[in-house]
Write a protein that binds this DNA or RNA. Structure first.
Lengths: 224, 224
DNA sequence: AATATTTGTTAGATATATCTAACTTTATAA
DNA sequence: TTATAAAGTTAGATATATCTAACAAATATT
């Protein structure tokens, strides 16, 4: 039984998603980067890029950086939409913690059933962000980019709202849990250590919590 | 990225499940049967049986019928447990109709996350049957077989409760929907046509509904 | 019992997705 | 600006899961 996988194989979907996630401003990604991110050797990546290029999902030219085509970007956004809707569903409707949902969503994002995800979307009330504050692409693949700042770029005296986290690893999220740090929280910056950029912040029942630069770089905030 | 699939590949899981589902009283299945059911050619089936035999999941000897080993049966039951829990979740918690859930569950049954299915189980209140009345294997793979009778084996005058349906195809379930036939319904048998075994039954707001033998064979009932 | 049909196996081919080893191109640094 | 390092490609091997064609065994039919 050839399990139905829609137009793209599971492997292809993972490459598309990775290309989408790794693309910065320029939208381009190196073979090496992609290789490291997917933990797949470079020759394998090269051959897959040729395949996706033949399907008009990736712009590929020897020795040049990779870029998704418009169609490739649409497909990738659709997968990320499914991933983020799933994360939201797991947290909001099934009682998972935000640190538990990544690996499950990583599998469910490949489910082929528009109806299944439409139902999720509906039950969730058409959310715009996932539990980590990442925007959920709409059905056309468009993403509502919110302009967040890194907490590490803020100055003492500023009061900000925690809007998103950059790293979704279970370890990082568990660290945030242990400090009662969650999205929506109002945080005041008390001081910044010029030596190592460590911040002392105040929020809720935490009058003076010390956060390393590494942590502050991964917290995205809204300066209102 | 080698997508994590636990101990068995997706293909292997589908063979195990099919062996489980096709095994009747004797617990044995023919290569040909399996081949037809999975829509995979016999030589492919033979080679997979050798592989599963090497993994001690199937008893395989040339030209003899196939049988799951104890371990194979456990693995198969675990997959079927995930399938049926999913169907129940889709119907009870996501608002799907019983005719819509098979194909989605067919995909979600392969998700590797014990926690995900434990959560489903818990949210559903540890159900014993799926939306089609099929028993949900417990965590040890044990199945609580209820002794149902085919409606087609019942006699005029009997009053029975619809407990399960044998065919889960969307078409059949839609037919049942169109006649307001659902699990739990109390049905009285008014008459049986000796010529073609067609039954005339009475239930709820249907004073005299005529059901073909083909349909009655697929309806399992409880004679209380 | 001989023959025909069905069922099952063997052998070898194909497609996908991966790898390693060797080589080439591009980028970096002395 | 040449040498070195990093990034990328080519060629060929491997594993999985599938197929077709040809053959063998078991079962059914006359």
């Amino acid at each position: 039984m050839t399990t139905f996988r829609g137009v793209n194989s599971l492997a292809e979907e993972n490459y598309l998603k990775a290309l989408f996630n790794l693309a910065g401003e320029s939208g381009v990604v190196n073979v090496n980067e992609l290789s490291r991110h997917l933990n797949i050797k470079m020759p394998t990546v090269t051959s897959m890029m040729k395949k996706l290029s033949a399907k008009n999902l990736v712009h590929y030219e020897s020795y040049k950086p990779l870029k998704l085509t418009e169609e490739g970007e649409k497909r990738a956004a659709a997968i990320i939409r499914k991933h983020r809707l799933t994360e939201m569903f797991l947290v909001e409707k099934m009682g998972f913690g935000w640190e538990q949902v990544h690996d499950i969503a990583e599998q469910i994002e490949h489910i082929q059933s528009p109806l299944f995800f439409e139902k999720m979307d509906e039950l969730l009330g058409f959310p715009k962000f996932d539990p980590h504050g990442s925007p959920i692409p709409d059905k056309d693949g468009k993403i509502n980019w919110k302009e967040f700042h890194k907490l590490s770029d803020c100055k003492p005296g500023e009061e900000v709202i925690l809007g998103a986290v950059i790293n979704n690893s279970s370890e990082f999220l568990q660290f945030l849990n242990s400090r009662d740090l969650r999205l929506g929280l109002s945080i005041s910056i008390l001081s910044v250590e010029s030596f190592d950029k460590t911040m002392v912040v105040h929020y809720e029942n935490h009058p003076a919590e010390t956060l390393s630069h590494t942590v502050c770089e991964r917290l995205l905030v809204d300066k209102q």
